[in-house]
Design a protein around this nucleic acid. Structure first.
Length: 852
RNA sequence: GCGAGGAUGGCGGAAUUGGUAGACGCGCUGGAUUUAGGAUCCAGUGGGCUUUGCUCGUGCGGGUUCGAUUCCCGCUCCUCGCACCA
């Protein structure tokens, strides 16, 4: 009996079938307190799960199983973010409908997740491409539309000809599409835009109340990029009107020695003098052709004088106006007042073009005697600023804004970097917009009659007609028609109502749409009457724990919060923020690779570390070797497939290994040999359970068990899974060494192991003679009295160096400790012939004797 | 350049209201068992030395303290994010 090995290949599928058959993980609505434990749902790609997915999923699964064992209510669902480009591109290549590809990929992902034993309530599975889901995505869009938060605009967007679609700024990296690395050009197109900027203050304020990684909070803050300043109007000298600028430093107005407008600025033509027109036109043309990448990599400031001047409202000075591409049209007013003394960029520009630099802020309160060598961007005291001299930066700002407002020369203004969200794409595989437009035509546009679509009169599709389904197409290629792929589906696009012709919106929504609100649909995924039951929302929101990759720190999490706030304002949800606690699991890298400088791969055994701490060849200490783990990628060939890992070691081993690698949030390299150690641990747990007997545990073992319960419980709550596993290993090793394994201790261990290695735990629970499932067994409680020792080991130092150890009662006195310490050989030797000058005694912690 | 995080044995990592550095695991070494094993079990394992013990040691250089991986100051390197946002 005792030599029976644990066989995951047989045991794991058996318990998976059991859980499915018995609906073990169905959400229990009645139990309290309640925990909504959420994973970022995956995009079901064609390559299946990679080993990074199960990291976060295992973490949440442990927490979910732990809370169920504690008798708490748990909502732990899973679904699919299934719209997206790859399925569409695959369709273009092979003619396979994206729906078929998506369905196949979802089946693979579901199989793999079940193979890993995750305790999802599969009855709540959602799929963003399912018409019954799309219906509510469209419903939310209508809410946005009704509230004036969705509008159309002709804007210069990132058009990617290869993909045949517009990309969001964040989907363009270095002038290339994030997916596929195709060139992207700027092109004005009619787009749907969501007014996320209207929520920027609330998106900022809401961050106060959430329990998120600080780095993520900071990234969101910086992405929103709120800055307070002033808009100042500079009257033009030789032309009508004025030039308005935004500045965060109105206190430096007296130092504005020139102005700069963006090349795209509407006033360029008006400001430019005939003498300068040729040079300006050339510069504008050049700037228009520059990609974002060119602009970013340009080291030298460029620009051209327009020939025009404006008047500085505070001192009447005549300042020259330049155009330069370091001023961006998309921020502020697209024009700046340049204060070279106190802005690095302006300083650099002034140096390049020999423009005067006037110091108006000084740290000391006195103007510098020598010319400035660099811009002083900090705060200080005003100089060379007329009546304002001597004011601090803060005071100056307040005063001058008030004065500008009084004279109608400007006003206080708040700017954000956050732009409104370009929400339309020209693809097939996305949610259609529930919008249509009147059409002017004298025939049947489907049959080729001329038509004009009145895009400025969008009409909402009635709620009762949702969802607007995608038309069937067999050609998914992007066309030249910037109205999108759907424009080719004429029978779908055009329809008649009361004798008038109408045209549907042919753009589709971006992939973010479905992922913005999926956590809400999990509340009641089968509800056909409403987006979800209000009662369910009351019960489960906000999400208690949200785990997912840091790559979503800004976009997904910001967009989802925005939609949530809109739904809050619409009275649909009753909590202001969707996600309470947020954790990002770290990336799992490939195995460490040892390479020579020539790039040849080496085995770990051929490598050693030299005296300087560098890796070199074992055979030749002068040849340096690089030791590094790399991100898993197909091109590097270091991608691991969970199916292979499960086949070789079992799902429980994979789960426990991924949690044992290190802290959840850390980036860590994979090591196949280390999984073997975890597998041995699980084998020892099983072997110990098989040895369990109805005997009493001795005191030491009982104490160890209780301390393990305390440690594991605390570690699960704090998501410190690596140290929890370590503690369970210690207890297991003690059981392995014990002459008898008390059944009571084995039972405790199995219940602790359960959230980490559920299949093994179920099997062990059965072997111990209990009824399945271990999920319904009570979480073990520890007795605090058994977690403290009566006797403690106290280190004894002499002059701060360890010289011996004492076993003492935990409340032993200094006198007892001191006299016992003198008996220690190592201590006595150090004290010999010396005077005891001082005794440091921290009860139960340390005894330090200072001698001289 | 700016912001955030990090650096501990051959490797992954433990340990911070300052108190025995290296838990746990991998790897390695030796042993047991085995026809054999990349299976299992036992023991050892930070470096150095004149090895009952001494000494050095948590990226580098200082400081505070009886005592620093932990606190303070100044660096180096790595990872991630942002990058002309006025």
């Amino acid at each position: 009996m005792t030599d029976e090995r644990y066989d995951p290949a047989e045991v794991e599928p058996r318990w998976q079938a059991y859980w499915q058959e018995h609906d073990t993980f169905r959400t229990d609505e009645e139990k309290e307190p309640r925990f909504y434990i959420l994973d970022m749902f995956p995009y079901p790609s064609g390559s299946g799960l990679h080993v990074g997915h199960p990291e976060g999923y295992t973490a949440t699964d442990i927490v979910a199983r732990y809370h169920r064992a504690k008798g708490h209510g748990v909502l732990h669902p899973m679904g699919w973010d299934a719209f997206g480009l790859p399925a569409e591109q695959y369709a273009i290549k092979t003619g396979t409908h994206p729906r078929d590809t998506t369905q196949k990929n979802i089946d693979t992902f579901r199989r793999q997740l079940k193979m890993l034993g995750f305790s999802y309530d599969w009855s709540r599975e959602v799929d963003t491409t399912d018409p019954s889901y799309v219906r509510w995505t469209q419903w939310i869009f209508l809410k946005l539309f009704e509230r004036g938060l969705a509008y159309q605009n002709e804007i210069a967007v990132n058009w990617c000809p290869a993909l045949g679609t517009v990309l969001a700024n964040e989907e363009v990296v270095g002038g290339l599409s994030e997916r596929g690395q195709h060139p992207v050009v700027r092109k004005p197109l009619r787009q749907w835009v969501l007014k996320i900027t209207e929520y920027s203050d609330r998106l900022l304020a809401g961050l106060e109340g959430v329990e998120w990684p600080k780095s993520t909070e900071t990234m969101q803050r910086e992405w929103i990029g709120r800055s307070e300043g002033a808009e100042v109007h500079f009257p033009l000298v030789d032309a009508e009107g004025e030039l308005s600028v935004f500045t965060t430093r109105p206190d430096t107005l007296f130092g504005a020695t020139f102005m700069v407008v963006a090349p795209e600025h509407e006033s360029v033509a008006k400001i430019t003098t005939d003498a300068q027109r040729e040079a300006v036109t050339a510069y504008v043309a050049e700037a228009a052709n520059k990609s974002d990448l060119d602009r970013k990599t340009a080291k030298q400031k460029t620009g051209v004088f327009t020939g025009g001047y404006a008047t500085n409202p505070v001192n009447g000075a005549k300042v020259p106006i330049w155009i330069a591409d370091y001023v961006l049209m998309g921020y502020g007013t697209g024009a700046i007042m340049a204060v070279p003394a106190h802005d690095e960029r302006d300083f650099e520009f002034a140096k390049t073009f020999d423009i005067p630099i006037v110091e108006v802020v000084s740290k000391t309160g006195k103007a510098s005697s020598a010319p400035l060598e660099s811009a002083m961007a900090g705060e200080g005291v005003a100089v060379n600023s007329g009546a304002y001299d001597g004011l601090s930066t803060a005071e100056f700002k307040t005063r001058i804004i008030a004065n500008l407002e009084a004279k109608g020369q400007g006003k206080g203004r708040v700017e954000t970097k956050l732009r409104d969200w370009v929400f339309s794409r020209q693809r097939y595989w996305g949610e259609p917009f529930p919008i249509y437009f009147p059409v002017d035509t004298d025939g049947d546009p489907r049959a080729g009659a001329d038509y004009a679509i009145r895009y400025d009169e969008p009409i909402a599709v009635p709620e009762s007609e949702l969802p607007v389904r995608l038309p069937e197409l067999d050609d998914f290629r992007p066309g030249e028609d910037p109205a999108g792929v759907l424009a080719r589906a004429k029978d779908w696009r055009f329809f008649q109502q009361d004798g008038k012709w109408f045209a549907r919106e042919t753009n589709t929504m971006p992939q973010w749409a479905g992922s913005c609100w999926y956590y809400l649909r999990y509340l009641s995924p089968h509800n056909d009457e409403a987006i979800f039951d209000a009662e369910q929302a009351e019960r489960w929101l906000p999400v208690s724990l949200y785990v997912g990759g840091a790559e979503h720190a800004v976009l997904h999490l910001l967009y989802a919060r925005f939609w949530h706030m809109v739904l809050y304002d619409a009275g649909v949800v009753s909590v202001p923020e969707p996600f309470g606690k947020l954790v990002h699991q770290g990336m799992i890298l490939g195995e460490v690779e040892y390479t020579t400088q020539a790039g040849d791969k080496l085995a770990a055994a051929d490598v050693k570390k030299n005296a300087d701490g560098n890796f070199v060849l074992e055979a030749d200490g002068s040849t340096p070797v690089t030791a590094r783990a790399y991100k898993m990628s197909k091109s590097r060939g270091n991608v691991l497939n969970p199916d292979d890992v499960v086949e070789r070691f079992g799902a429980d081993s994979m789960r426990v290994y991924e949690m044992f690698m290190g802290p959840l949030e850390a980036t860590k390299p994979w090591s196949t040999s280390s999984i073997g150690g975890v597998r041995r641990f699980l084998d020892r747990v099983y072997a110990s359970v098989l040895r369990a007997e109805p005997v009493e545990a001795d005191e030491a073992l009982m104490k160890l068990a209780h301390r393990t319960i305390q440690k594991v419980t605390g570690d699960i709550e704090a998501l410190r899974f690596n140290t929890a596993i370590s503690a369970m290993m210690v207890l297991t090793n003690a059981l392995v060494r014990a002459e008898h394994v008390p059944a009571e201790i084995a039972s405790m261990l199995v219940r602790l192991v359960h959230p980490f290695a559920p299949h093994l735990a179920e099997e062990c629970w059965l072997k111990l003679g209990h009824e399945p499932s271990v999920q319904f067994a009570d979480w073990p409680e520890f007795d605090p009295a058994l977690c403290v020792d009566d006797e403690v080991e106290v280190p004894v130092q002499v002059n701060g160096k360890l010289r011996g150890k004492l076993m003492l009662a935990k409340d032993a006195s200094e006198e007892t400790a001191l006299s016992a310490a003198r008996e220690l050989g190592g201590v006595a030797r150090q004290l010999e012939g010396k005077t005891l000058r001082k005794v440091i005694w921290v009860p139960g912690r340390i005894l330090n004797l200072i001698v001289g």
